[in-house]
């Protein structure tokens, strides 16, 4: 039975692969997938440039971290100069003033009021732990909920709807192909394309984010839990394509306009945390968030809507999450198969 299905599924996948990877209609999916890579890359470049600048300033105005950390509120200008030496920059605002120091790694601003230290602010160099949290937030807020979500809308709703618009779906429907086989073949092609595109995006983001760290720092991170985090993020990305892909494949069979189901699913996924336990399980984000290695922490300055978006649902264990996702996907694909059996070619009304 499975053997009978494999050959035609392979034929469908071969035909669909080129369309899903190289469709002009899907070019924006690449942009959405790679946009965060550009942001992470920029962040690394800025951090590298800042590091270079601090090292140069520290060379010209040598001081030590210990000396700078010993500056306390209430000290006079002379005491500060005695401990930390001449700053690389002075800002004189009458009764107020600022001395700017760097030890080549972190930056310190010593704020004076009436010639006495009022406070010391420190801008430390980004750490991998800090950037990991940033990445987790971007991943959960932007990548999962928007980039992969809408990327899957674009790819999977077009698998059937796009062919109806191109008036080419009859090519398949004039063959003795089981409609379920067609659904599976198209789904595999869409899943392959989105998984490759978005997993590449995930890996590139991590790579771009690591560019401004020392090799030794990266090695330490990888030797600790780095590899498992990277694998988890790639896995969650693939799982998101698996789950959202099945949902939007069915949506493409049900609706003419993909915006309506996309908006409805987005609302449903966002409302997930308010839903009762049973209904929570009928969503993709519920399982995905449970699989993320770091829970994104809402920033205190974040507005309420954004907080809501990254709030994790009550997590389940990884095996339960993976099985749950497969069950939801399987059920949706079964529904898609049924919908495909009732599919008609009536291009004039599509």
């Amino acid at each position: 039975m499975i053997g009978m299905w494999l050959s035609p599924i392979g034929s469908v996948v071969r035909l669909e692969m080129k369309k899903t990877f190289f469709s002009k209609r899907g070019l924006w999916v690449y942009l959405v997938a790679l946009a965060p890579v550009a942001v992470m890359f920029l962040h690394s470049m800025v951090s590298l440039a800042n590091g270079e600048e601090r090292r140069a300033l520290a060379a010209a105005h040598p001081t030590s971290a210990a000396a700078l950390q010993s500056i306390m509120p209430g000290m006079t200008v002379d005491e500060v100069l005695e401990r930390a030496g001449e700053p690389f920059d002075r800002v004189d605002l009458g009764r107020r003033g600022v001395f700017r120091y760097t030890d080549g790694r972190d930056a310190y601003n010593v704020n004076f009021f009436n010639n006495q230290v009022a406070r010391v602010t420190t801008r430390t160099r980004d750490t991998i732990a800090y950037d990991s949290t940033i990445f987790a937030t971007v991943f959960q807020f932007f990548y999962l909920r928007l980039a992969i979500f809408f990327g899957c809308v674009g790819v999977f709703t077009n698998l059937f709807r796009g062919e109806l618009l191109d008036k080419s779906l009859h090519y398949y429907l004039l063959t003795p192909l089981r409609r379920e086989v067609l659904v599976i073949g198209k789904y595999i092609a869409g899943l392959t394309a989105t998984t490759v595109i978005f997993c590449t995006g995930t890996v590139l983001q991590i790579w771009a984010l690591s560019l401004h760290f020392e090799k030794s720092e990266i090695a330490d991170f990888l030797n600790a839990d780095g590899w498992s985090h990277i694998a988890a993020y790639v896995g969650v990305t693939a799982a998101a394509c698996l789950g959202y892909g099945s949902v939007f494949l069915a949506a493409g069979l049900l609706f003419k306009n993909p915006i309506i189901p996309a908006a409805s699913v987005e609302v449903w996924e966002s409302l997930n945390i308010f839903l009762p336990a049973t209904l929570k399980k009928v969503s993709v984000i519920y399982y995905l968030q449970s699989l993320c290695p770091i829970v994104a922490q809402p920033d205190e300055n974040m507005n309420r809507f954004l907080k809501l978006m990254i709030n994790a649902a009550e997590p389940v264990s990884a095996p339960v999450a993976i099985i749950g996702l497969f069950v939801v996907t399987g059920l949706v694909l079964l529904l898609s198969g049924r919908l495909a059996r009732r599919l008609e070619i009536n291009y004039s009304t599509d």
Binding site: P8, S11, R14, K18, S168, P176, L177
Partner: peptide, 22 residues
């Protein structure tokens, strides 16, 4: 319907079609 899977030659069109027959 005068539309075809994009980028195909006549031969590929028929061959791919027949492969869908198993």
């Amino acid at each position: 319907f005068d539309s075809y899977p994009r980028g195909m030659t006549g031969f590929q069109f028929i061959q791919s079609y027949l492969r869908l027959f198993g």
